[in-house]
């Protein structure tokens, strides 16, 4: 099958994760991965981002498919249920707003900058090599640490389900995917028709 330019966006995803390892401020670039799918869903009413441009999905597809790092088993029924998908979306939202709140506290001066990346919302990994102070307010860095935590957490979860189930199992419960599908359903109705 013919390869398109967007079939190489996995490079962008990997570059993003590597850049954030060395300088946390690059984490801000990740906002593109949040806003582009939403803009496509709202403006065009499609999941064009998931279908074509998602570099994260491509990474899982390559590692699990070509590199054979997946058992290629069916995902459990409960994991594809609406209850789990919507529940996970809500959970992600709550964690995201908590991250925004922490950013606000640093901006407001009531909390000091914490140079840690929180993995799976629990494990605080020291990440102090990736920040040496800049012209910007420490709150800018706090958002970057928080956002990178979100991105790394979802990558780790995606890798675990990639190994256990099918390569792109993450796509089943990806909060962005669930959210864009909901937007499309709201715009186009529940039943797909050509």
């Amino acid at each position: 099958m013919k390869k398109h330019w967007y079939d190489y966006l996995w490079i962008v995803e990997l570059t993003y994760l590597i850049l954030g390892f060395f300088n946390i401020l690059f984490a801000w670039i990740g906002l593109f991965f949040f806003f582009i799918p939403l803009i496509i869903a709202i403006a065009r009413g499609t999941k064009g981002y998931c279908n074509r441009y998602c570099g994260r999905g491509q990474v899982f597809g390559l590692l699990g498919g070509r590199f054979g790092l997946s058992r290629k088993k069916d995902i459990p029924k409960w994991m594809k249920s609406k209850a789990f998908r919507y529940g996970f979306l809500i959970w992600f939202f709550i964690m995201f707003f908590q991250m925004l709140w922490n950013t606000y506290l640093v901006f407001a001066g009531t909390q000091d900058l914490r140079q840690v990346v929180t993995l799976l919302w629990t494990f605080k990994l020291p990440w102090n090599w990736a920040y040496h102070g800049t012209l910007f307010h420490p709150g800018v860095a706090q958002f970057a640490f928080g956002f990178y935590s979100v991105m790394l957490t979802s990558t780790v979860l995606g890798l675990v389900t990639m190994v256990l189930f099918k390569p792109r199992s993450w796509c089943v419960y990806c909060p962005m995917g669930t959210m864009t599908q909901l937007i499309c359903k709201a715009k186009n109705g529940n039943k797909p028709s050509m």
């Binding site: 869903a41 009413g45 499609t46 937007i183 499309c184 359903k185 109705g189 529940n190 797909p192 050509m194």
Partner: peptide
């Protein structure tokens, strides 16, 4: 994938 809702 039709209109971001489901595959057909």
């Amino acid at each position: 994938v039709i209109k971001g809702v489901a595959a057909q």
